[in-house]
């Protein structure tokens, strides 16, 4: 079935099925952390999660119908936001903690050992509290994550060729499907029409906060790489470079 003919319910169940499995860091964490050991654990986990993120994106109905150039560009623009929203979701029931994975949980204070990371941890914890206050539901979470992916480069590229225009139109229709799905998920919560509208507004406004934290995180990671605190390699390096070379 094409996503345009799917009901919002069907669309949500497809993106729920696309959810990546729980991922473990699988390292012996030596505490207390050093700046290098914490950065290494964070980047190792990110690299593993990125591989699963690509498979996740491909399972979102309609994503693989976009041009390959758009698929690449979207993922390169939003990967850290997606990782951060996943982190927020895992941490939502654990106030004051960031649950990077079931075997890698950090307290706010542990951020002290990495220069400049406490500020980012605090912004992530603040976003997590906000989602906790809103009692974010799983259906809403999966819609928000798809919205981040599809919205990530809408305002940074303009289609030139006919092929680019076609892909852009597909992208816009796909975003319509995701917005419809989110509206449907909110409508299931038994709120008044006005409360539903407000909830949609509050949830989508949080995405601008996540974009902001992601930009901070991207700068932080590139600084850590430049100072040789951590060796960034493989897929993570490719995704980081895309954000640092204006690409």
């Amino acid at each position: 079935t094409h996503h345009s003919s799917m009901s919002p319910e069907e669309f949500i169940s497809r993106i729920m099925e696309a959810e990546p499995p729980e991922i473990y860091l699988m390292e012996d964490l030596k505490k207390p952390f050093t700046q290098a050991s914490m950065m290494m654990s964070l980047t190792n986990l990110a690299d593993k999660e990125l591989v699963l993120m690509i498979s996740w994106a491909k399972k979102i109905p309609g994503f693989v119908e976009l041009s390959l150039a758009d698929q690449i560009h979207l993922l390169k623009c939003c990967w850290l936001e997606i990782l951060m929203l996943g982190l927020i979701w895992r941490s939502v029931d654990h106030p004051g903690k960031l649950i990077f994975s079931p075997d890698f949980k950090l307290n706010r204070e542990e951020g002290q050992c990495v220069e400049g990371i406490m500020e980012i941890f605090d912004m992530l914890l603040a976003a997590t509290s906000r989602f906790r206050e809103l009692k974010l539901q799983r259906e809403e979470y999966v819609c928000l994550k798809a919205m981040i992916l599809l919205n990530s480069n809408l305002c940074t590229s303009s289609p030139q060729t006919a092929e680019e225009l076609e892909s852009r139109n597909k992208l816009l229709r796909l975003l319509d499907s995701v917005i419809d799905a989110l509206v449907w998920a909110i409508s299931k919560l038994g709120l008044s029409t006005q409360q539903q509208t407000l909830r949609l507004g509050h949830l989508t406004m949080l995405l601008s906060h996540i974009r902001h934290v992601s930009n901070k995180g991207m700068d932080h990671l590139s600084t850590m790489k430049r100072k040789n605190v951590v060796l960034v390699y493989d897929l993570l390096l490719e995704m980081l470079d895309a954000n640092m070379t204006g690409g």
Binding site: K59, I72, L235
Partner: peptide, 13 residues
């Protein structure tokens, strides 16, 4: 070929 491109173009398992 970049790793991203490679992951995007391989058929799902």
């Amino acid at each position: 070929h970049t790793k991203l491109l490679q992951l995007l173009t391989t058929k799902p398992e």
